[in-house]
Amino acid sequence: MANYSTNEFKSGLKVMLEGDPCSILENEYVKPGKGQAFNRVKLRNLNTGRVWERTFKSGESLEGADVMEYDMEYLYTDGEFWYFMATDGSFDQHPADEKAVGETVKWLKEQEKYTVTLFNGAPISVTPPNFIVLEVTETDPGLKGDTAQGGSKPATLVTGAVVRVPLFVNIGDNLKIDTRTGDYVSRA
């Protein structure tokens, strides 16, 4: 991979740091009137999700990370891996382990498209679409006529996720959910 100098750092650039692939979040140039310049950089470690803050001498460089994001369709799980298929026409299948799937496991629905991040060809993270439609498998019976306001109750979705929903929601309803917050949006 190419090396990137601090003056090429920008949000979204993928670089290697201490053996881990990282995505640059922020890059601040710090320069006194007299004296050396530094770059104060925030990076997300793509393996752990943790945010690192590091300072570099201006002009220092880091090796680029072979990190690519692809749209992929979720196929199935065998309990150990979750299998995704490239939608670029290659039909390549990529097994993602528990660590790569992480929290997204509760939003995994067959034939839905996800963003899969590959590092050196292997999945390291899976990001769900911002909104996803999922069926309710378990909830208290709905209250007729209550369509506007008042209380909420828990509902279990087909993926196992539990979300707060309005009282009128019934088993078998399809719900639109915001995966970033886990909030109910509407009936679909």
Binding site: V30, G35, Q36, F38, R40, R54
Partner: peptide, 24 residues
């Protein structure tokens, strides 16, 4: 203080960095 790789920094560089990151 800053996570920099410091082995190659000379006295002035360390002072510039500490001044701008921790004191300024």
């Amino acid at each position: 203080k800053t996570g920099i790789t410091a082995e190659e920094l000379d006295r002035d560089a360390c002072c510039d960095l500490l001044m701008s990151s921790c004191i300024e």
